[in-house]
């Protein structure tokens, strides 16, 4: 019996280790690649230990992109977008979940419908709008159009629905205004959902390529994905530089995720003991 248990455990561990290797190896290779000159990356057998080219890669990357400005662009856009968009979706979700008003279902239906329109369809009309506003090459052209995310609204609505009406009623009896109820009672309760939405929105904006690419023209305004994409030349690609840029671009996502993860997990646990 015991030996059977051990052997099945061994198999599970082997499978798990294989999974870990499979998912970590590309990242490892990316990090190693960022410390090698471009030619070395193609060497057979591949070099598995980091080289000493990191500083040089950083220097060339900085020369071709101006990495600080690019990082600032990406970070500014993603953070402002995430903050505002999370707030908007929480407010909209709250309204749809907890209030009765004329046309509520109709509006919610419309919002859901926009989920079904592929973004390619709206690309050209939106672009024309940006040109008319003279907004090409600006931050707001990237932040504003997708600020109200139907998916996030939907997610928040589903979460808000689970909040018992009695909480709101109790607050009202205690004399709290509607805004105060929303900010001090509802929002803290839905923190885990907000964290999930924020991570989702941050990642989608941080990684977004097509729309920023279409609307941004000058190097100083590029976001990270657009800038990295511009590194891929017709015939020459400095892979070391590219790997380093990609490595750097994953760091903020990791930090953002780790920061919000706490809320995320505490929310899941908090929910499990409530009932």
């Amino acid at each position: 019996m015991a030996s059977k248990k051990i052997s099945s455990k061994i198999i599970i561990y082997i499978l798990l280790i294989a999974g870990v290797v499979l998912s970590i190896a590309p990242f490892y290779w990316m990090i190693v690649g960022s410390t090698l000159p471009s030619g070395e990356i193609f060497r057979v057998p591949p070099r598995l230990l980091p080289g000493d080219y990191l500083a040089k890669n950083f220097q060339t990357l900085n020369e071709s992109l101006g990495i600080a400005k690019i990082f600032w662009n990406s970070l500014f856009i993603a953070l402002v977008y995430t903050l505002i968009s999370t707030l908007i979706s929480a407010m909209a979700g709250y309204a749809f979940a907890k209030f009765k008003f004329k046309g509520k279902n109709f509006f919610f239906f419309i919002i859901l419908c926009t989920l079904m329109i592929p973004s390619q369809v709206t690309l050209i009309p939106l672009f024309e709008m940006m040109v008319t506003f003279n907004w090409l090459n600006t931050y707001q052209a990237i932040i504003l159009p997708t600020l109200a995310s139907p998916f996030a609204i939907y997610l928040m609505r589903q979460n808000m629905k689970a909040i018992p009406d009695s909480i709101m009623e109790a607050s009202r009896i205690d004399g709290a205004g509607e805004l105060k109820i929303f900010f001090t009672v509802i929002l803290p309760v839905t923190r885990p959902a907000m964290a999930a939405v924020a991570i989702f929105l941050f990642m989608s904006q941080w990684n977004s390529l097509l729309w920023p690419l279409i609307t941004l023209n000058s190097k100083e305004m590029f976001t990270l994905p657009v800038a990295l994409s511009s590194l891929i030349g017709m015939a020459r690609i400095d892979y070391g530089q590219l790997m380093l840029g990609t490595t750097l671009s994953t760091i903020p996502i990791m930090i953002f995720f780790l920061l919000l993860q706490k809320h995320f997990i505490s929310g899941i646990l908090g929910g499990s003991v409530k009932e």
């Binding site: 097509l210 279409i214 000058s218 994409s229």
Partner: peptide
């Protein structure tokens, strides 16, 4: 003269969108 630099696939995307938007941008 201001030269703006993209990778070629990106440039075609931008060009197609601009032409489809009747030459905007």
């Amino acid at each position: 003269v201001k030269v703006e630099d993209f990778n070629s696939a990106d440039l075609y995307d931008k060009l197609t969108v601009g032409l489809a938007a009747r030459g905007s941008g």
